[in-house]
């Protein structure tokens, strides 16, 4: 029984690992292939099966004049927009979540839970519904095709995620911690900053991770709200496509674009496994 369990455990771990890692390996080898190696039947191992070359990678940094796409600027645009919007969303979201978790709001029949749901409901609509209002809104304040405009829109999209995660998290942080801080002589702001917030770092990290992921992978709004001045990475990658699909440069760009998320995942995993909250009370 025990042996069978261990066997099955490792079996499924291996299957899952292959399932997750295989596409990356596939993309990695493809990125070093040329037209013939891609179209000449299945090949796996460089130098043995096919002759690797760097054409696919070079296209990413070559200027358009020389037949490349130059993703460096869109890359940093994406990093800047995602990080700024995530940071602002986390700050605003955490403050609103704390208020929603600790204080009672009432406006007619609208209470705390309704307000929390209102935040989440922003994400229930299909994005296409929001595209026209966003477009008109940004054009009315002259922020179409600008980084600032994108940041504003991304804050609207990411803040609900932050609020949702942090409300749940603060609800799990015992109220007695705030009360103890008050009794120890903090004012409510100090209690929040010095006591509650340090205890909520795991929650902040999870919320931050989701904001970064959803911000980074967004194609739809980046596509609709920008034209020529500003481009974000997902839009640029799609622009790579042409009548002859350049699998090598698409694979290379896929790997480049997923790299920041992998780094984020590794950092987050380390923090989450520490389990900072366990033992706050009890």
């Amino acid at each position: 029984m025990n042996k069978l369990y261990i066997f099955l455990k490792y079996f499924f771990i291996v299957v899952w690992t292959v399932f997750v890692v295989a596409p990356f390996l596939w993309a990695l080898t493809t990125s070093f292939k040329d037209f013939q190696s891609v179209n000449g039947g299945v090949t796996y191992i460089p130098w043995l099966d096919f002759e690797p070359n760097l054409e696919g990678w070079k296209v990413l940094i070559k200027s358009p004049a020389k037949g490349g796409v130059d993703i460096i600027e869109p890359y940093f645009n994406s990093l800047f927009v995602t990080c700024t919007a995530s940071l602002i969303s986390i700050i605003l979201g955490t403050l609103s979540a704390y208020a929603l978790s600790r204080y009672t709001f009432k406006a007619g029949f609208v209470k705390n839970n309704d307000i929390t749901f209102f935040f989440i409901s922003q994400r229930i609509m299909p994005p296409i519904v929001l595209s026209i209002p966003f477009f008109l809104f940004l054009s009315s304040i002259n922020l179409l095709d600008s980084l600032t405009g994108l940041i504003v829109v991304y804050i609207v999209l990411l803040m609900p995620i932050a609020v949702w995660i942090m409300v749940d998290f603060f609800n799990k942080v015992p109220r007695e911690i705030d009360e103890t801080a008050l009794i120890d002589g903090c004012n409510p702001y100090q209690a929040f900053l010095k006591v509650v917030l340090p205890n909520s770092i795991p929650g902040l990290i999870v919320a931050g991770m989701f904001c970064i992921i959803f911000g980074w992978i967004d194609f739809f709004f980046a596509f609709i709200l920008t034209f020529t001045e500003v481009q974000l990475l997902p839009v640029k990658i799609v622009a790579l496509n042409s009548s002859v699909t350049p699998w090598w440069s698409l694979s290379a760009s896929a790997l480049v674009s997923v790299a920041p998320l992998i780094i984020v995942a590794f950092i987050v995993e380390r923090y989450l496994s520490k389990g900072n909250l366990s033992g706050a009370i009890k």
Partner: peptide
């Protein structure tokens, strides 16, 4: 007077400590 100005100490049913300190 607010709690923080009363100079009271209170110990709750479950120990409340500042975890990060």
């Amino acid at each position: 007077l607010k709690t923080e100005d009363r100079n009271i100490a209170q110990v709750f049913q479950f120990p409340v400590i500042y975890n990060t300190m």
